[in-house]
Design a protein around this nucleic acid. Structure first.
Lengths: 224, 224
DNA sequence: CGCTGAATTGACGGACATCAAGATGTGTGG
DNA sequence: CCACACATCTTGATGTCCGTCAATTCAGCG
C-alpha cells in the first residue's frame, strides 16, 4: 500500500513531502517554496479565496477556522511547525487561516505540486496520503464535538501533549477563546474545566498557557 | 486546476470515477468492481479492519459510524446511490459501515485503483479530488455539531433534500436514532424538533419517514 | 503605577438529556 | 383478516450541564 509510511505518523506532522521538495534544489522544476512571515493574528488566507497555495508551518502556530453568519467561530484545526495546512481546499478555501503568534510559513504553489505529482507518482501518492490524514484528523475532531465539556478539554490536552514537545509540560500557543472555539465550548467553560482539573490534581497551571500534566492516566480515562 | 469538474458537483454524488471504471471492460487491467448485496443492518466493513476496498452505493443507503467506548455512536455520514464511501481509510478503516436497508454496493479493490492511478494521472487526480470532497463534507458536518438542535435538524433536512430526489418530498432511509446519532442529539429532541416544524407549517410528515418541505426559505434561514 | 485585555469565578437561566409513558406502525402466525 | 408482539416514534415531566451575564483577579506594558 502506498501510504504506509505516512500513516505510521501522527496526523500531519513531520511530513517529508514539502520538506524534501524544498531541499531538492537540483531539479529545474523544483518546488519553489517561499518562506513568508506573518504577524500575530495576520490572515494567511481567507474563506472563499482561490486556493493557489499549500502551506507548511515552519515556526509559530496557525489556526484555521470558519465563521457562522451569526458570528460564532469554529476553529477547524491548529497547526504547529512541520504541519501542512490548506489541504482542505478544492478550487477555493472553505476556511480561513491566521497566525496564532508571529509565524514563519512555507508557501508552495499548488500548480507546482501538481506538476511534480504528474511526473513522480510517489509524490502524487504522498499528496493523497496527506489529504487522507487530514480527513482523519477532522473525523477525530467531529467525534470530540459530541462529548461532554470535561471530555473535550481532556482530549484537547492529550492532543496538544501528543504534538509539540513530548514533555509533560505543554506550552499552549492559543488563547482560551481559541480553545473554546476549537472545542465548541465557551471560554468560561474551558476555564472552569481547567480549574476543576487543577483541583483534582490532574494538571497544574504554571501560567495560564503553561500546563503541566500530572496524571495522564486520568486524562485518558476522561477522554472516553 | 485538476479538480475543476469534481468540485462543481455536490459532495461525492454521481462521481464518474468508479462508474466509468466498471463500464470499461475492454482494458485487461480494468477495475473489477464486484456488486455485492447487503441486508438491512448488515456490516459492510468494520472499524480497525484493513481497508482493502473502496465502495460505491448502487441501490439502498449506507451509514458509516464510530463508537465511543461508553456506547455512544457518532454517524459520520449517509451514502446514497452513486455515493462513494470508504475513502476515509489509510491502512485500516477508522469507521464502520452498515447498510441502512437492503442495499447493493459496488466493491472495488484499492490495489486496482492504485494501479490504475499509476497509469492514468487523470484518474489519480480524481481519486485525490474525491478525498478532498469527502474532507469538505466532514468539515461541513463538524460545523453542524456546534449549532442548536433546531439548526441541526433544519440543516439535515436541507442536506437530504439536496441529495436524492430533487423533490419537495423526502423519503428518509434512516431511523430517528440514525438521525440523532448523525446530528449529535437524542431521538426525543429530533422528534420534538420535527413536530415543532410541523406546527410552524415548515414541513408536513406524511409518514414518520416521508417528509414534505413546505417552506424551504424558513429552513434556510434556520440553517444559520 | 495605572491602564488594558485575558482569564477566572460566581449566580442564574435555558436548552437539551433523561426518564417514563403512550401512540403508531409493522411483521408474524393463527 | 385479525390478533398479538415488538420496534419505532411521539409526547410529557423533570433534571442537569453548560451558556449567559456580570464582577473580580491577573498579566503584560507603556
Amino acid at each position: 500500500m502506498l501510504m504506509t509510511a505516512a500513516n505510521s505518523q501522527k496526523y500531519s506532522r513531520s511530513l517529508p513531502l514539502l520538506r524534501s521538495g524544498v531541499a531538492q534544489k537540483d531539479s529545474p522544476q523544483a518546488l519553489m517554496g517561499a518562506a513568508m512571515r506573518f504577524a500575530r493574528n495576520a490572515e494567511i488566507y481567507g474563506e472563499d479565496e482561490p486556493a493557489e497555495y499549500l502551506y507548511q508551518a515552519i515556526s509559530g502556530a496557525v489556526r484555521t477556522y470558519r465563521m457562522l453568519d451569526d458570528g460564532r467561530r469554529q476553529i477547524c484545526g491548529f497547526y504547529l511547525p512541520g504541519d501542512i495546512f490548506g489541504v482542505e481546499a478544492g478550487e477555493v478555501h472553505l476556511s480561513s487561516a491566521e497566525a496564532l503568534n508571529d509565524a514563519e510559513v512555507l508557501v508552495v504553489k499548488r500548480s507546482s505540486l501538481m506538476a511534480r505529482a504528474e511526473r513522480e507518482k510517489d509524490f502524487a501518492a504522498q499528496l493523497w496520503a496527506l489529504t487522507v490524514r487530514e480527513l482523519q484528523r477532522v473525523q477525530e475532531h467531529s467525534l470530540v464535538l459530541i462529548k461532554s465539556a470535561e471530555e473535550r478539554v481532556a482530549g484537547f490536552l492529550l492532543e496538544m501533549s501528543g504534538r509539540s514537545c513530548r514533555d509533560a509540560v505543554i506550552e499552549l500557543p492559543m488563547s482560551r477563546r481559541d480553545i473554546a472555539d476549537y472545542l465548541g465550548l465557551t471560554i468560561e467553560t474551558v476555564s472552569r474545566t481547567f480549574t476543576q482539573f487543577v483541583q483534582s490534581g490532574i494538571i497544574t497551571l504554571e501560567t495560564s498557557r503553561r500546563i503541566q500534566l500530572r496524571d495522564e492516566a486520568v486524562l485518558n480515562r476522561l477522554n472516553a
